[in-house]
Each structure stands twice: as C-alpha cells, then as structure tokens.
Computed example of a mutant assay.
Amino acid sequence: MSYLIKPLGYKALLNLAQTEMGIKMIKDFFQQNLSSELRLRRVTAPLFVLKGMGINDDLNGTERAVTFPIKDLDDAKAEIVHSLAKWKRLTLADYQIESGYGIYTDMNAIRSDEELGNLHSLYVDQWDWERTMGENERNLEFLKEVVCRIYAAMVRTEYMVYEMFPEIKPLLPQHIHFIHSEDLLQMYPCFTPKEREDAITKEYGAVFIIGIGCKLSNGEKHDGRAPDYDDWSTVAENGQVGLNGDLLVWNSVLNRSLELSSMGIRVNKEALLRQLKETGTEEKKNLYFHKRLLNNELPQSIGGGIGQSRLCMFYLRKAHIGEIQASIWPEEMRRDALNAGMHLI
C-alpha cells in the first residue's frame, strides 16, 4: 500500500538540471572513494540469474522475484535479482580475489512487492560490494573498522556536494555511533523497531545498528534477514549476537531516519548450518551456492549494499526518491507529490 509523506513547506533546493548534475557528481565521487577505502575493483554484474540456483537474494523471504522464461533454454525460468549478496561471493572465488581486496558493481533490481512511497520504489539501484577477509578478521572490531571506512567516504562526499552547491549545508557528524539492536531495545522498550531507529538516529545523526536478524530478548527480531549471507547468529567476544547491521542517517527533510546501507560479515559453514536450521530452511543446503559454501569452495568475506538513489536523495535534500530516479508511481501519488513541491521524474 503506497503512502506519501508531505513535509510542510517543502521546496527543492535544486532545479531539475542541477539535480541531474548533482546525481552524476555524487555517484562518480562516492564510488571512487568507496573503491579506495576498501580496495575494491569494479566488475560487471548480471541483471538476472537462473531460478533454483540459490544465487538470488531472498531478502526477508516473502518478496516475489520478477521471473521470465528463456526460449533457448527450454523455457527455463530466470529471475531479476533482488540483490547480489551471494553472486558477489561466487565472483570472489571465481576471480581468486586475495584477502584484503574485493569487488564492487552497479546493481539494478526490480522489487515488485515494494510498498511505494518517499523511500521505496519498484526500481532499486545500489553499489553492491564484497571483500575477501581472513578468519582472524571474523569479529566485531573488523566489522566496525569497515563501517567507519564507508562512513568516511560518505562524509567526504557530503562536503563535495557543499562545495558544488553551497546552499546545501553539511549535516553528517564526523563519527558514526554504534549500538547493538538489543541495547537499542532496552533503551526504548515500548517503541517499535522503526521508532527506535528514529529516536537513536535523531540523537546521533548517523548510526550503525548491529545484529539484524537475530532474536532479541522480547522474542522478536529488529528486522528480518535471509539466513544464507549475513552472519547474524555468531556470539561476539562481548557476548552480543550478530556480525552484521544497518547504517542509518538522520533525514532532516522527512524528519526520520534513512537507511543507506545494509552489510555484514558473511556466513561461514557453521553459521550457515545454524541459521538454516533456525529458520527451517535446511532444504537450501542442496542448492548450488550453498553446496559450494559447505564444500569450502568460497572465501570468507564481508560485504553489503549502498543505495545509490537514497544516497543522492539525502545529499541533495530531496523529499522523495522519485525526485532522483525514473520509476512508476500511482497517478494519485504523482499528483499529490507535485502539489507538495516534489517533482517525480
């Protein structure tokens, strides 16, 4: 069900031509900084993969992939990717990427089950990245180090935007705040997960919430996560569960938190078996990706996705993702958005 947030008195700071120029500059600048920070090389990625291989991302396990038959493969079904979480790890193995280095790519997807609104579109574009790591880096401190490197690239990009468009003042704090989802629950026990995200992000400006997918003390998860890529069940040295998380910033235009990235240390053999059992999906062990992982044919890795349109939306102080990307929207939303100062491309 679509839902439109209409910020009172909203007026875009940039016209259409300036917006397109800003999008181009942000994408070029940020990906170069991301590549340098994490030592990533760019690779070409697929738009679709064969169904039944276990390569496509299941997201929360309920979203339907867009599928189509392939005539020259006896009508075998292909799926538009949801993300490239597992494809990237296969690519690290096939390209024999050494520890400490990795890959990134432009990921384009169609998510037909999205509830359309200011932050959600049928079209998803993000930088998907993956980096080979050693077993000794399988810990929370390494995860935090990588998050800080990504966040440093985000801070630099915001300052570049300010130099280009002085009317857009920098908002990001110099350092990102880390908090575990269980500690966040204890801080705001009566709030929903989304309300907790808004409260902590408004206080700190930029937050990384650790432990997405694991069950909390109230028996619920902060948010869902597929069991076969992020490791959300390993117990860290500090006793907390999870080696993954979400990066959020405070969106002053919409007056709420904005998730820009989801990332984590990936499952090893033990974590995969544990999480498949916990989610009742042990039949996945027979799929192509899972067999290769269980046969120790895939490297240990850390990876994630960073939303391109959302990043540009934040930097250019836009109220709707449709002001950044071309997509399909309900006519009523287009009309209401335009009346509220949001020109949807």
Score class of each variant (00 low, 15 high):
Leu172Phe: 00
Phe191Gly: 03
Trp232Ser: 10
Ile110Asn: 12
Asp113Pro: 13
Leu119Cys: 07
Met154Glu: 07
Asn118Met: 13
Tyr159Pro: 02
Asp228Met: 02
Ala199Trp: 00
Ile210Cys: 01
Trp250Thr: 01
Gln126Asp: 04
Asn218His: 01
Leu243Gly: 08
Val253Glu: 00
Tyr159Lys: 11
Asn238Cys: 13
Thr157Tyr: 03
Met187Ser: 11
Met187Asp: 11
Glu237Met: 13
Ile150His: 01
Glu145Val: 11
Leu140Val: 11
Tyr151Lys: 04
Gly245Asn: 06
Glu114Gly: 06
Val249Ala: 04
Trp232Pro: 04
Ala236Tyr: 04
Trp129Leu: 12
Leu254Val: 11
Gly219Tyr: 08
Pro189Ser: 15
Thr234Tyr: 09
Arg156Ile: 00
Glu163Asn: 12
Val124His: 05
Arg156Trp: 00
Glu130Pro: 12
Met107Leu: 13
Val124Trp: 00
Gly134Lys: 14
Leu247Ser: 09
Lys202Tyr: 05
Leu122Ala: 07
Thr192Val: 07
Gly224Ser: 15
Tyr162Arg: 03
Leu140Ile: 15
Ala153Thr: 07
His222Lys: 06
Asp125Ile: 05
Ser233Met: 09
Phe178Leu: 08
Glu195Gln: 15
Trp127Asp: 03
Thr157Arg: 05
Asp128Arg: 14
Pro173Phe: 05
Glu182Lys: 09
Asp106Arg: 07
Glu195His: 11
Arg225Gly: 06
Asp113Ala: 14
Val161Glu: 03
Leu248Ile: 02
Gln240Phe: 05
Pro227Ser: 06
Trp129Phe: 15
Asp125Ala: 11
Asp113Glu: 15
Leu143Thr: 05
Thr192His: 04
Lys169Asp: 05
Val207Lys: 06
Ile110Cys: 08
Cys148Thr: 13
Asn244Val: 04
Asp231Met: 05
Met107Glu: 06
Ser217Phe: 08
Met107Cys: 14
Tyr229Gln: 08
Gly245Arg: 01
Val161Phe: 08
His180Thr: 08
Gly224Glu: 10
Ala109Met: 09
Val207Met: 12
Ile210Asp: 02
His120Leu: 04
Asn108Ser: 14
Leu247Trp: 01
Val161Met: 07
Ile176Ala: 03
Asp113Cys: 10
Met164Val: 05
Asp113Met: 07
Ala226Asp: 03
Val155Tyr: 04
Glu141Leu: 12
Thr157Leu: 01
Arg196Asn: 07
Asp128Ile: 09
Gly205Tyr: 11
Lys202Leu: 10
Met160Asn: 12
Leu140His: 08
Glu141Cys: 07
His222Cys: 06
Leu185Val: 10
Ser181Gly: 10
Glu158Gln: 14
Leu185Lys: 10
Ala109Ser: 15
Trp250Gly: 02
Leu254Gln: 11
Val241Met: 13
Ala226Thr: 00
